[in-house]
Design a protein around this nucleic acid. Structure first.
Length: 478
RNA sequence: GGCCCGUUGGUGAAACGGUUAACACACCUGCCUUUCACGCAGGCAUUCACGGGUUCGAACCCCGUACGGGUCACCA
């Protein structure tokens, strides 16, 4: 068996999208799990759509995720160049060979003519719209600009065994003669891709399902040159929670890796979550490290039905990874967000550290610390319905407890978590309440909610003035 | 419209003709903590879109229906 070589081949038309990241990740996982090589190739043949910085951005966030490549434009490799625009003479040579062999021909049609032709066929109700081949039959003599079309063979059945879907079959009759080299001399995707995959000795291709109909076209190129076809696996689409394919224009779902990085999601968490998009691990837990994911990656466990981008699952997975962070790492993750939101003005470094630690067991991503701050510290103080119901269950006891707690807080010399803890204890004695009947009024009195973080620490961070003011408001409202 | 694909609990998702239909998330209950959260232990689909068929036996195979999706460019 020859060497395992896979590739991720983005076009530098934008930032790293979640779907691209999944493609890259699965190729990477396969390579790593098989001891193979992972190649990064830049498919920049659409010169109109290429954006400055797109390539660098892709590479940047791939690395952020922890995906490293063995060969590419920056690290070199013996099969370069790895940018398609730098390989133009290669494609030209192969295209000329096909024309010389009569397997491809020059087409002088303009795009307007082609469009008109298609419209006409469509108007006639033709099911299977193909190029008419008129330039093959009667090439015009008065034109100079041309593209090169592949002459699709007749009555050939293209069959391949897909790693995900099993045997897949396409008929050549369903495919029209397609352009392999555009009028500007640059090859099309399907041609460049097939040539490069062969020259770069790619053994396996994992790509999105939207590419499955490209496979027979690429097989035609392999056949024309007598090359071996790589093994393909077409991964299911990633759909949003409404069941639609994740589209870059879909505003409801955040879908660029950069955005997750900026929100303070962890690369480990994203790596983990994305690995679940179309592959199910055998292990009970879905919370896994990169090494565990690599070790358990199995092409037989690739899913056939579309995978849903499940935000609740992402939140859970990322929370689990955040819990593995050391205190300093967590602080580092949250700090930029706290600073951006001006939460820290007038606060001590210890205050920031305590705030972050307070929510360490439930934080889904770094910037959420600001939301939690707003909820418990800065937001408008409102008492939740369920909380009010609890207090009015026994108004006398509630008022007694709240008042005692307020008095205790006012009398504290030092105001910190330890002191507050003692104050709560003393409140219990004074008001003659304990357990839930002690803590709940105190908690509601300062936070308005029945759920929240560790109470003494919360009150300590809130500060005496705010805590007392809130308690007064609650007492008066009863 | 042609071609291709999918359809399992509130959600994600296993199972590759024979199990009480995994597991995870969410939710609920109990334990723990003088509260909350974390953690731990349990609970939660008379059932696998629907209708036929094949088989001793089907979520898994075949046919049809419905619904959803993908693709039909000188974009990748």
């Amino acid at each position: 068996m020859s060497e395992i070589r896979v590739r991720y081949a983005p076009s530098p038309t934008g930032d790293l999208h979640i779907g691209n990241a999944r493609t890259a990740l699965f190729n990477y996982l396969f390579a790593k799990s098989q001891g193979g090589k992972f190649i990064l190739r830049i498919e920049d043949t659409d010169i109109a759509r290429n954006v400055a910085g797109g390539e660098a951005s892709q590479m940047n966030y791939l690395r952020w995720l922890g995906i490293e490549w063995d060969e590419s434009v920056d690290v070199g490799g013996e099969y370069g160049p790895y940018r398609q625009l730098e390989r133009l003479e290669v494609y030209q040579k192969y295209a000329e060979e096909l024309v010389a062999k009569g397997l491809a021909y020059q087409c002088y049609c303009t795009s307007a003519e082609l469009e008109a032709e298609r419209d006409q066929l469509e108007a006639k109700g033709v099911d299977n719209i193909h190029y008419s081949r008129r330039c093959l039959e009667q090439p015009p003599s008065d034109r100079s600009e041309y593209s090169i079309r592949f002459k699709v063979p007749e009555e050939v059945t293209y069959t391949f065994t897909d790693l995900v879907r099993g045997e897949v079959t396409f008929e050549s009759a369903d495919i029209g003669d397609w352009v392999i080299v555009k009028a500007n001399g640059i090859p099309t995707y399907n041609f460049a891709c097939a040539v490069d995959d062969h020259l770069m000795k790619i053994s396996h291709i994992f790509r999105g399902e939207e590419h499955i109909t490209n496979t027979p076209k690429q097989m035609m190129i392999y056949d024309a040159f007598g090359w071996d076809v790589p093994v393909c696996g077409h991964m299911t689409l990633i759909v949003n929670e409404a069941g639609k394919k994740l589209s870059k224009r879909d505003a409801d779902t955040v879908q660029f890796i950069q955005q997750y990085a900026e929100m303070g999601y962890l690369p480990e968490g994203m790596f983990n979550f994305i690995s679940l998009l179309g592959h199910s691990p055998v292990s009970e837990s879905e919370v896994l490290t990169a090494d565990e994911i690599i070790a358990s990656f199995d092409v037989n466990r690739l899913s056939k039905s579309p995978s849903t981008f499940d935000r609740a699952k992402l939140a859970f997975i990322n929370t689990q990874h955040i819990k593995n962070l050391a205190e300093d790492e967590l602080l580092e993750l949250c700090m930029p967000h706290l600073i951006d939101a001006d939460v820290l003005v007038g606060k001590s470094p210890d205050w920031a550290r305590d705030l972050v630690n307070l929510f360490a067991d439930r934080l889904t991503h770094g910037s959420e610390i600001v939301d939690l701050y707003d909820e418990f510290f800065d937001g408008e103080f409102v008492i939740a319905d369920a909380a009010r119901e609890f207090l009015t269950g026994d108004v006398d006891a509630s008022v007694r407890t709240l008042t005692a707690f307020k008095n205790e807080l006012e009398g504290l010399v030092e105001f910190d978590a330890d002191a507050v803890k003692a104050a709560i204890k003393q409140t219990g004695k004074t008001a003659e309440v304990k357990g839930k009947n002690l803590f709940m009024p105190c908690r509601i009195g300062v936070s308005g909610a029945m759920h929240g973080p560790d109470l003494p620490v919360l009150v300590g961070l809130l500060g005496r003035d705010v805590a007392v003011a809130r308690l007064n408001a609650v007492i008066e409202g009863l």
